[in-house]
């Protein structure tokens, strides 16, 4: 992000650079290193001929072949659905509980040590536990995702709600802003930078848990399919799965970035103003 803004500033500082050459330079920035890396990979796999290192061309061809409509509907979409469902549920619960705890100092003092401990438990250990609890089904996979991604969201929301500007609180009181409006315009909005930061952490944990709950205990889904390819030594297929997971992670991160920019446009504006830009 900040590298991108450096770029634009650099471009703005160079008055001589014409539009076309700037675009060309930008394209070069974007594409040169990826192309070099892919080329190096191609060369390495062609020269060494290692069985676990297929050429990028092979992987791309396999990718199209393996992840066709059938597997997409049977394995990929259900996985993504569970991921989004679990993440949404975790976010709603985390923010709701976080607001309650953030507003009550006493409740917070009582629960803080317990919550800190739960946060410190590495979420993947919950997979075998919840499997024991509920068997292997969609509810269990959802529960794993929720129970993992809720902690960063919950604790960041508490932090954000605690840090609401006291002047704003008093102002709202003076103007009689209360109830739902008070919650949305004052509390949630003030806490939204922290909430979004927590949700970003939660999202990456949710992806990890989606994958490993399927690797550990499942007979379908993205994680299961990929580990199955590895077990049957279907190497290009395995790589295509890794590629798909990578694209999924990248795509979700881009989407989240867009959502975040929408939610936090005011905050970015305030920060930019504070920096004197």
């Amino acid at each position: 992000m900040s590298a991108a803004s450096t770029d634009t500033r650099d471009a703005a500082r160079r008055p001589g650079a014409s539009g076309a050459s700037r675009i060309a330079l930008r394209a070069l920035h974007l594409l040169l290193l990826p192309l070099v890396l892919i080329g190096a990979w191609w060369l390495a796999s062609a020269v060494t001929g290692l069985y676990y290192l297929p050429t990028p061309g092979e992987i791309a061809a396999t990718f199209v072949e393996v992840w066709g409509a059938e597997r997409l509907a049977a394995d990929v979409l259900p996985s993504i659905g569970r991921l989004i469902g679990g993440f949404t549920l975790g976010s709603v619960l985390g923010v709701a509980l976080g607001v309650v705890l953030g507003l009550s100092a006493r409740l917070r003092a009582v629960l803080e040590p317990v919550l800190e401990f739960f946060r410190a438990i590495p979420p993947p250990v919950l997979v075998p536990l919840l499997m024991l609890f509920m068997g292997v089904n969609t509810t269990m996979k959802l529960a794993v995702i929720v129970s993992g991604c809720i902690w960063p969201i919950l604790l960041n929301t508490i932090e954000g709600v605690r840090a609401v500007d006291p002047v704003l609180i008093d102002t709202c009181r003076c103007y009689g802003v209360r109830g739902r409006r008070w919650l949305t315009t004052l509390v949630l909005r003030s806490a939204s930078p922290q909430i979004m930061a927590g949700m970003r952490q939660g999202l990456s944990i949710a992806i990890i848990l989606m994958v490993i709950s399927e690797m550990f205990a499942s007979s379908s889904g993205l994680g299961y399919t990929i580990i199955q390819f590895q077990r049957s030594f279907a190497i290009p297929e395995m790589w295509s799965g890794i590629l798909l997971l990578g694209l999924l992670g990248f795509g979700l991160s881009v989407l989240f970035g867009l959502a975040e920019r929408r939610v936090l446009y005011w905050y970015n504006g305030v920060r930019a103003a504070a920096r004197g830009e």
Partner: peptide, 19 residues
């Protein structure tokens, strides 16, 4: 390096388990 970093960073490391 920006584009490469932004692509590689969000890849969940569990994707590398089979490898």
């Amino acid at each position: 390096t920006h584009s490469t970093v932004e692509f590689l960073r969000p890849i969940p490391s569990v994707a590398l388990i089979p490898l």
